[in-house]
Design a protein around this nucleic acid. Structure first.
Lengths: 292, 292
DNA sequence: AACAATTACGGAATCCGTAAAAATT
DNA sequence: AATTTTTACGGATTCCGTAATTGTT
């Protein structure tokens, strides 16, 4: 025997401390709450309250019950949301990415994806990806950190490979490729939201300064009129803001040789969604840019 | 909006496959179930069923919903049980042990424990101890495998140390103590339920045979009239069935030197129960038998 | 013909709000 | 005097069972 509205009353009482405030917050009258808590005690066969004529407080058992009630309510909301998201995912897909390159590729392939597809505009963080899939918040996530949960399928798609653009007259520019160590103590122009790349370049390049730009236009303007080195990847040709810069003849693009500059990209999804996701993975693979 | 009886109906429908059987199993009429499932779909705003005039089946969404509903119901039952157990633990304690020695000590100290205390007669297994404490099935557990969960307090109590009883004329008997390796290829009389000791002796003594006795009386009789070696610990003097054997002058008791023959014993409990448990721990420590 | 699901209608249980009472600060 | 909890009573919602309908196997 377990009635939902009683759990609501119990948890809000645990917050407010009086039945009156509880009633006010739930838009019911005091007698309702009084009866409710009496019924809860009767249903569970447990004393939840210490009662004095004018004051009512939770017993230790009552405090535990309030915790449990809150957990149950949250679990219920989550379950409903999961089911609703699943229903939605039957005719509407949501895709996310933790990496900037694959995100650009997704947006580039947007016309070839099913009509009812949403691509989350911002990068996801690598935390709680499993949860986001299991909650059906996302049908497909592209990430370099393949979740290890047993009920999640992961598939390797390809790599995103970092390159740096240098002024052609810098002494480091006179070679086919480059290592992070050769870039030390330089100042770089960097677009702010580049996911895990941010950590990687900050750790790999000693003494470097990074001028993070929140706005892509600001990045384009500054890079057009200055000679700050800036980063690229094999996906950058997809971005119109970045490709305009390649027309600048005085910069040289050098792929970075270090292992950490080659980021694997995995597709993560629930086995349930295998059939809907499969054609998308094929599409991504077919349009994956060259590694250089 | 989430009604409990609708979850029950959904989960039983997932098992039975027809509304009629569902109704029969829940002791209600078909119309009740029909309306219930319609209401569930309306409440959640989701299509759960494919309906044909004569047959109704779960959609993929419906199957997921049924799973979630079953999980929610179980979580609810567990929560209620936990609260009820906690209430009970306010005036009634349940203690368990995974080790035979500490269990005997508990039973020996029974008269000095609070009146409303239950000591589980059988040994617990080392799995799910954390769960048993958190579910309030047990207030205190004595174990050699201290649970690592963050919300569980563990305290070292002492050790249980294995010894072996040999016929005095066996060549190994002529020493103060012994090692497992010296017992190889012998046949031992062993009481069946000795918890983790069973694994330890089976691994440590190569080529040994173990004659497990389910009944303690059988063990006593056979050991009295034969010369099979048998095991003991520093707790065994507490057991009347075992102490009678020490009167046999023709057996020698040898402590075992190996590290694995010295089992640490921890008290595990929830911080909530600190105050009730503390005097018991003191009592156990004061009556802990000598290590030999 | 038998079975399964649904709809319509009336009764029963439950839950809520208003009003009033009791007791404390 | 103002708050807080509790009890009593009447109304309203909701939930269920019986009976009847539709459509399939």
């Amino acid at each position: 025997m377990l009635d939902n509205y009683l759990l609501e009353e119990l948890t809000t009482f645990a917050r407010t401390g009086t039945l009156a405030k509880t009633a006010a917050q739930l838009n019911v009258t005091q007698p309702t709450v009084t009866r409710g808590m009496q019924k809860l005690e009767a249903d569970w066969g447990v004393r939840l309250f210490d009662r004095q004529p004018n004051r009512i407080t939770l017993t230790p058992t009552g405090k535990l019950a309030a915790q449990e009630a809150a957990a149950l309510l949250q679990a219920q909301h989550q379950a409903i949301k999961k089911v609703q998201n699943f229903e939605r995912s039957q005719h509407h897909l949501t895709i996310g990415s933790t990496l900037p390159g694959p995100l650009m590729l997704l947006q580039h392939l947007r016309p070839q994806l099913p009509v009812q597809t949403t691509i989350t505009a911002d990068l996801l963080t690598d935390q709680d990806l499993t949860q986001k899939l299991q909650d059906r918040d996302y049908t497909l996530i592209l990430t370099s950190q393949a979740p290890t949960a047993p009920d999640i399928t992961t598939q390797f798609l390809g790599t995103e490979n970092l390159a740096v653009n240098l002024n052609q007259f810098m002494y480091q520019a006179n070679q086919a490729d480059i290592r992070f160590a050769e870039l030390k103590d330089l100042s770089f122009l960097v677009i702010a939201d580049i996911g895990p790349w941010r950590d990687i370049i900050q750790r790999a390049i000693p003494g470097a300064k990074f001028l993070y730009q929140d706005q892509r236009e600001a990045f384009r303007e500054i890079s057009a009129y200055t000679d700050f080195p800036y980063f690229n990847s094999n996906f950058s040709f997809l971005d119109p803001l970045l490709t305009t810069n390649t027309s600048k003849t005085n910069t040289v693009r050098l792929p970075i040789r270090d292992q950490s500059a080659h980021m694997p990209v995995y597709a993560a999804y629930l086995p349930t969604n295998q059939t809907v996701v499969a054609p998308m993975i094929r599409l991504l693979r077919e349009n994956w840019p060259a590694t250089a």
